[in-house]
Amino acid sequence: MTIDRQTVEHIAELAKLELTEDEIELFAGQLSAILEYVERLQTVDTDAIAPTASVLPLRNVLRPDEARPSLPRDEALANAADQAEGQFRVEAVLEDV
């Protein structure tokens, strides 16, 4: 499967990344290579292997219900592209999801 320019631009838009023309070309090639590799993995016969959701030997990692201090608001908002009234300000999004 090949990733074309249009798909890269779409993904970049969703991820709020600004890419140059060169980067679009570069990532289209890299993403295609990654997907081709995954396609190769899919050819492996896994019929005899039980499905798994996680390869970590962990289960039930839980924490007690105790509240701890959150970030100071200034810090939390420091990376926001835009802010107002202590809130993140984004372009109007009226459509409900």
């Binding site: 924490r63 509240a67 970030l71 608001r73």
Partner: peptide, 28 residues
């Protein structure tokens, strides 16, 4: 609960608490 589902931020009354005072890197 006292804290959020996946982080230790306090669960506050979202209709009255000052905005964005109970957030951390996890829920951000």
């Amino acid at each position: 609960t006292a804290s959020k589902m996946f982080c230790a931020c306090e669960v506050v009354d979202s209709t009255s608490a000052r905005p964005n005072t109970a957030i951390c890197p996890v829920c951000l």
